[in-house]
Write a protein that binds this DNA or RNA. Structure first.
Lengths: 345, 345
DNA sequence: TGCTCATTTGGTTCCGGTACCATTTTCGTT
DNA sequence: AACGAAAATGGTACCGGAACCAAATGAGCA
């Protein structure tokens, strides 16, 4: 054995290592190594052990790109808007946890709510040929929709559960109902002049549905809704504070405000403290999301509880179920919600 | 032209579309199509236009897996701990934005701080042969370190900037200095019995450094540090509240608490409100992170401002610079910090 | 002992963009 | 007109698992 280039030494750079190399070292066919990686049960225990030992010794990490190219990819892609100041981080965490549990990796692409940005994000995603995709909100661009459909991969839209025609599967809550329920809840507690604050609604079907739910409740209550009782602000605590100031300035007699996000509501609560206003004595505050801080807030925040983490998990679960070959239906999964009645309203 | 299978129709499923197919339709070589995709300048404008038109018409989305297999991949991978309740979401947003700007995609893998989990995460990441990697915190497992090095890809650790030997590049702040500075700041404002609250420290070098900085300041101030002045709680608002109760029960004369996270500090502030304690009259509260809500909080939160978003961006920038062929140095980038003195302390 | 069927293993080809090198076309120069 | 260099384009092999099918080995049973 001349110590030529055939030094059979280990620790080659990851680059030059593949099933072929491992196979050579063990004395089996590349195919056998491949099977140990993806279908261990098809390989005799003794052979399997030898292969695994060689893999371990060589520090071999199978190239998932190659697997993916042959259609057995284990990556799911997702498009989400900003992770900052919203429940999206929770949702992504849920997706990630469930992916990991299922042996999948997650590609995260940032997306905006404009049709062009959306199309771009989806193109980027599709470039990686993911086994499945999860999209935040309904797809608006027809081109993007077409691309998704022709990709053949299963898609879950996490969105308002009613409305536009879904591409494939949908997971979400009825934003209409949540907002309707909260508005009715506030009314039931005796509030009569209820304002509505949200982040910019344009192009966001979930927010649109919430506002519609708020309107529906008002009209059912026989309350005429004024546009002046609604404000759009950026999704920051400062935005919430600003909205509170704006609405209470406009309407001295406003007695409750429903914020479309806890972040906004919490900001408003702080503004009340600054002004020495009693909550809910001077004004009642309700939020949306039930983020961690909501229950700990002083006073505890009345809010709509929607489990974003669970939504993320469910979305991935739907995808993995489909990929595992189970039912081919374009299911719509509606997660429940809960009006959490605390002391702020 | 018999309308056999050669119907030259468009809209084949994404599956069957490739540079070869596009090339055939345009009447050029596959290589030319490839060049249009990655080196447009090498193709004559007229040819380029024809190819682009065909790509557009066919709805062709180039397969990035194939590119990656030939070494021109445009994916960067990252391992981060939970996105919930921490500055990590901001950091990931920063990474994502910078990746997108540079034409890269981001693979997100969840990681824990144990060596085994870490190794597993890194293996998962390496399986996708990313062009570069960003890791939260220093790598502890020797095996993982070895794998990373032999992968040949550039690595950025976002971490405490001093301490363990980095693998390649490092971006971060000196957690020691931030905590030291805040503790001194509190002392300068006249507080003498300063508690320290953090999330579980074990295996987290950043938190270790912060505690060490706190200790160093105390010792420089001639204050003996008692273990009973320190508490570890989960990273939730409730945890902060709980820590406040614990410390004030143990030490009636405690006059300030430095929380290693704004989330905790905000929870503690709420607990003070519940108890009717004046801040900072009864007790001063300081946080870490300067999250959005900190400035809006009542009272506004004194905290350590570290720009996590920027840290994420910088980390990716380092990677992209390296990939673009610029300098090969194992740089250490230290981002500044700021003691934001507000009214809570 | 001969034969069938299940288990285990091997050989070959493919996925699709691109590195590498060869070839042709286009121009500027003398 | 002739020639060399630059620009544009083409041909082919390759990255590395895995699908597909063939072959070999072993077990079960008449």
């Amino acid at each position: 054995m001349t110590a030529e280039d055939e030094d059979s030494g280990r620790k080659k750079p990851l680059e030059r290592l593949g099933v072929r190399e491992i196979a050579k070292r063990v004395g089996v066919a590349p195919m056998t190594v491949s099977r140990v990686l993806s279908n261990p049960d098809m390989v005799a225990p003794a052979t399997r052990a030898k292969v695994l030992a060689a893999i371990e010794a060589a520090g071999f990490v199978p190239n998932r790109l190659a697997s993916s190219m042959r259609g057995s990819g284990r990556m799911i892609g997702t498009v989400v808007p900003s992770l900052i100041n919203s429940g999206i981080a929770d949702q992504v965490q849920g997706m990630s946890d469930e992916c990991q549990a299922g042996g999948y990796s997650m590609l995260l692409v940032q997306g905006e709510f404009t049709p062009e940005a959306e199309e771009h994000s989806i193109r980027t995603l599709l470039g990686w040929r993911p086994a499945g995709m999860i999209l935040q909100s309904f797809v608006q661009s027809e081109v993007a929709r077409q691309l998704l459909v022709s990709s053949g991969a299963p898609v879950v839209e996490i969105s308002e559960i009613k409305g536009r025609k879904p591409i494939d599967m949908v997971v979400g809550v009825s934003n209409f109902e949540t907002a309707y329920a909260m508005t009715m809840h506030l009314a039931a507690k005796g509030y009569e002049r209820i304002g509505f604050v949200s982040t910019p609604i344009h192009g966001n079907d979930r927010l649109q549905q919430r506002r519609t739910g708020y309107h529906a409740a008002l009209s059912e209550l026989g309350i005429k809704n004024h546009a002046s009782m609604e404000v759009e602000v950026p999704i920051t605590a400062a935005g919430g504070a600003q909205a509170l100031v704006l609405l209470t300035d406009r309407h001295k007699d406003i007695d409750a405000i429903f914020f479309s996000s806890d972040t906004l509501a919490i900001g408003a609560v702080q503004e009340c403290h600054r002004r020495g206003w009693a909550i809910p004595g001077r004004i009642a505050i309700a939020g949306y999301g039930d983020m961690d801080l909501a229950a700990q807030l002083f006073p505890p925040l009345t809010t709509v509880k929607v489990n974003r983490y669970e939504m993320g998990r469910r979305a991935v679960r739907q995808l993995l179920d489909r990929l595992a070959g189970n039912l081919k239906l374009a299911t719509i999964t509606s997660l429940g919600f809960e009006i959490v009645d605390r002391e702020s309203a």
